[in-house]
């Protein structure tokens, strides 16, 4: 048994509180550590990732082979119309993992441990959202593979397709912050999951993800045309299969920053209030 060193000063600081530069370095290092920790979970329990990619694959098959024949999409083949929609749906549904993960950590007491460590408090949230970004990247790869298997063909260049994936990841990251709020409010992970559903359902289905908005009743257009999932979906579709991109891409980026701008402070505030 080593003899513990008796010290009267906080480790890492020679005198007084750490400076801003050191704090920033710590915040970064702590975020890296927690991102790693959260990603390890997905690697250790590959079932989580496996089963969460089964659902989008089912959706691909369902819409490609069951409903797809009845959906008219103008000049575009339905499979090419569908896959960008599946991308955005999978990203949106996947963001629930942020809520579930945070709720679970709170429930199990690991966040209590983190809060008693000299680490940057923000790292609990940034580490979580970055890990979920990594997860989204893997899922995007899976969807791309499945899409190609069922006949999807990108009609633009590689750069545009990559830009599309980039936009998806940006949106995914923004949504993570939104769902972080749910994860911090929910009493447990099960509730976090069901709380997310009534939000996700209208966003993904009353959107341009699966059917052209023009086929919906008129009163729904206002919502379906401008809500973020439709906007990002249109942008990704344009980037992958062609069409006017500029305005949809800028609107998507605006949505992503808007969501982070409003919901990240809410999540941080909620996290701080855990102490009361």
């Amino acid at each position: 048994m080593g003899v513990p060193v008796v010290t009267l000063r906080p480790p890492g600081t020679a005198e007084g509180a750490p400076g801003a530069g050191l704090r920033l370095r710590w915040a970064f290092a702590d975020t890296v550590t927690l991102t790693w920790r959260n990603l390890v979970r997905y690697v250790r329990i590959p079932e989580t990732l496996f089963w969460s990619s089964v659902q989008p694959i089912m959706f691909v098959l369902l819409f490609r082979y069951v409903f797809g024949g009845a959906i008219r999409t103008g000049g575009v083949s339905y499979v090419n119309f569908l896959i960008p929609g599946i991308f955005i749906q999978t990203i949106a549904f996947g963001a629930v993992n942020t809520a579930i993960g945070l709720a679970e950590d709170l429930q199990k007491g690991i966040i209590e441990r983190f809060r008693a460590l000299p680490m940057a408090r923000s790292a609990v949230l940034t580490g979580r959202t970055f890990a979920d970004l990594g997860r989204a990247l893997v899922v995007c790869g899976i969807i791309m593979g499945v899409g190609y298997a069922v006949g999807f063909r990108a009609e633009t260049g590689a750069a545009a397709v990559l830009a599309g994936v980039g936009l998806l990841l940006l949106f995914s990251y923004a949504l993570s912050w939104g769902f972080a709020v749910i994860g911090l409010v929910a009493p447990n992970s099960e509730t976090a999951q069901v709380m997310a559903f009534p939000l996700l359902f209208p966003l993904t289905f009353a959107s341009s993800a699966f059917v052209p908005v023009q086929t919906m009743p008129h009163w729904l257009h206002g919502f379906a045309d401008y809500q973020p999932v439709s906007v990002v979906c249109d942008a990704v579709r344009a980037l992958m299969i062609g069409g006017p991109t500029a305005s949809a891409v800028w609107q998507s980026i605006a949505w992503a920053f808007g969501i982070v701008g409003v919901l990240a402070p809410l999540a941080v505030r909620r996290y701080r209030r855990l102490a009361r």
Partner: peptide, 22 residues
């Protein structure tokens, strides 16, 4: 109340706490 992480190994848990203690 202060849990350890079930998905990590014993070594990883201690290393993580070491890193988070800077």
């Amino acid at each position: 109340n202060a849990a350890v992480d079930e998905n990590l190994t014993g070594r990883e848990n201690l290393q993580m706490i070491g890193r988070l203690s800077h």
